[in-house]
Each structure stands twice: as structure tokens, then as C-alpha cells.
């Protein structure tokens, strides 16, 4: 079976859940090989093998990780040139998409982004995407021997599938232009302690209706162990950081449960949450378009409804 490359999504060796999901997808299409770019591979290797990586290509050159993402695309292209993979699977993050775009042009391979499912059909990869703000579902495939796919978080389950995990060190030759864009300063964002927005099984978002006070939204989210999101109106007003924005120009989330509080449900917002499994809204305006999407809705003031719900949840949990 042909190799399928998975670009490992990790934080200094700590493998993110998306990587295990991508290895699961890779096993449907061929023999998974992880591509690990960075240091601390020893921390990642066991996990990657456990989820099915037969090989682990290791690119440890600091020149690759020190610059922006262009060198990673060069590294991946060189590995793909040797491995002739059936597919290359990359996480659908902003960096992942830049790597995928550059790689597609380097190796002349079809690129499909933001897949929510990938299956083998007649021996080739076929993807499912949600398009036009979630109003259509599209099946797509590549016409080239290699398919590059960026996949969204939660697009596959994670399954143990112990494999060899043989490490293959890779030396990469970088072009000058690849290192011409550099990160010169990085200020870490303070962690909120809440789950990551795109990976969280429950997301609670606040909008214009909060009037800038997110405390009932946050308290309700915390009672459910949820991530907190915000509408564009709330972000534009400076009430919540842009990194928490759910919508077309922010994050697209697809959790088990999405709660919209004080959000009217403009197309911009719907594009980011319409594919959530269960949707709840709390809004003072019974005409708000968000109510067209909901499984359960409360017409009311979020400052009354959410604290009462938070209390009831805490009481049930004892």
C-alpha cells in the first residue's frame, strides 16, 4: 500500500489530538507515515506509533522551525518527492493551509481544504466539505496521483493501532526565500484554562446582547466545561479577543453542542457554527434568525436565563 504522509500537529513534542485523528484518516487511505518537524520527537514518537505511524520522518533542523512556515513546505515537498504518497494530510489551521498551498504548487498535487470527512473510494481519497456557510455538502477528489488534504478538528475519531514508528531522520536543503520571513517577537497569549475553541465538544458564545459583559456567558460555559466564543459584533466592539471569534472570518466550529447567547445569527456567524450537532440560543428578540437553527431556544434576557441555568446545572452536578 502507498504511503500517506501526516504532518504532525504538535506543541514542542506534545502531540495534539488532531494528529491522532489524521493518522486514523491516513490508515483508510494507505500506510501512515508521520512527518515530525521540530525538536522533542522522543516525546511524540510513542504516541504517533500507537496511533498507526509505521514511519516517522524527523526534521529537526532549527532553520526549518525558526522561520515562518515556508521551510516546512520545502521539507514536506522533499519527503513527498521520495515517498510518492497517495495523500498528504495536514491540519486545517492557518499555518497548515499555507503549508498545503505551497506544497500543492511545489509537487503539482490537488489540494482540498477544510475536509470534515475523508474516505477511500475506489482506492482514492474522497473528501466531504461543508460549503457556502454550511448550506451545502460537497464531495471532492483530486485528479493528481497525490491528494493534499487539510482536515478540520473532530473529522475522525481516534483509534489505537500500534505500528512500528520507525524514525527516519531527514536532512532538508532550504532555499533563501524560504527563510526570508521571520518571527522577530512572540508574546504568548495568557491561557484562559478553557478548552480550545475548534476542538471543544461544547462551545458557548456571546454577542451584541452581552453589552460587553461576558461574565454570565463565561460562568455558564465553565459549568459545562465549554470553550467561549464571540460573535463578530462583540469582537469588533472590543469586548472579546478576535481569536475567539466564531464565524466566517473567525473560527469555524462544529461541536456537539453550541450555545449562542445574545447573538442574532447573521450569515457571517452562521458560517462558523451551522454544522454544530445541537444548537441552543438565548436571545431577547424572538425574530432573531438564530432561532431558525436551534434545537432549543429561549426568548429572554441572557442576564436572567444564563445564571439560572448555570445554577441549575451546578445543582444537578451536586
Amino acid at each position: 500500500m502507498a504511503e500517506v504522509l501526516v504532518l504532525v500537529d504538535h506543541d514542542n513534542g506534545e502531540v495534539r489530538k488532531t494528529s491522532a485523528e489524521m493518522l486514523n484518516i491516513a490508515r483508510r487511505l494507505g500506510t501512515p507515515s508521520a512527518v515530525f518537524i521540530g525538536s522533542n520527537v522522543q516525546e511524540a514518537a510513542d504516541v504517533l506509533a500507537r496511533y498507526g505511524a509505521e514511519k516517522i520522518y524527523v526534521v529537526a533542523d532549527p532553520a526549518v522551525t525558526g522561520a515562518l512556515v515556508a521551510p516546512q513546505a520545502e521539507a514536506l515537498a522533499q519527503i513527498a518527492g521520495q515517498a510518492n504518497p497517495a495523500a498528504v494530510i495536514i491540519a486545517s489551521s492557518s499555518a497548515g493551509k499555507e503549508i498545503a498551498g505551497r506544497l500543492a504548487v511545489k509537487i503539482n498535487a490537488g489540494l482540498i481544504t477544510d475536509a470534515v470527512d475523508v474516505q477511500a473510494v475506489d482506492g482514492a481519497a474522497q473528501t466531504t466539505q461543508s460549503v457556502f456557510a454550511g448550506s451545502y455538502t460537497v464531495q471532492a477528489s483530486a485528479t493528481t496521483p497525490t491528494t493534499i488534504i487539510t482536515v478540520k478538528p473532530n473529522s475522525a475519531g481516534i483509534e489505537m493501532a500500534q505500528a512500528a514508528g520507525t524514525q527516519v531522520p531527514v536532512d532538508v536543503t532550504l532555499s533563501d526565500v524560504a527563510t526570508a520571513a521571520k518571527i522577530t517577537k512572540s508574546e504568548p497569549r495568557q491561557s484562559t484554562g478553557r478548552p480550545e475553541l475548534t476542538e471543544a465538544p461544547i462551545v458557548v458564545s456571546g454577542g451584541r446582547g452581552t453589552g460587553g459583559d461576558f461574565s454570565p456567558v463565561e460562568a455558564f460555559a465553565d459549568s459545562l466545561g465549554a470553550a467561549v466564543g464571540a460573535s463578530r459584533a462583540a469582537v469588533d466592539a472590543g469586548w472579546y479577543p478576535h481569536t475567539s471569534q466564531v464565524g466566517q472570518t473567525g473560527k469555524q466550529v462544529s461541536p456537539q453542542l453550541y450555545v449562542a447567547a445574545g447573538i442574532s445569527g447573521a450569515i457571517q456567524h452562521r458560517a462558523g457554527m451551522q454544522t454544530s450537532k445541537t444548537i441552543i440560543a438565548v436571545n431577547k428578540d424572538e425574530e432573531a434568525p438564530i432561532f431558525e437553527l436551534v434545537d432549543f431556544g429561549v426568548v429572554g434576557d441572557l442576564f436572567q436565563v444564563l445564571p439560572q441555568a448555570t445554577e441549575a446545572i451546578q445543582a444537578r452536578r451536586g
Partner: peptide, 10 residues
């Protein structure tokens, strides 16, 4: 290099 095989309204 890619093609839409099918589409369906949700």
C-alpha cells in the same frame, strides 16, 4: 487538479 464529484443542499 481537484474536482467536485457531487454536491447536495444540506
Amino acid at each position: 487538479w481537484t474536482k467536485v464529484d457531487s454536491f447536495a443542499k444540506r
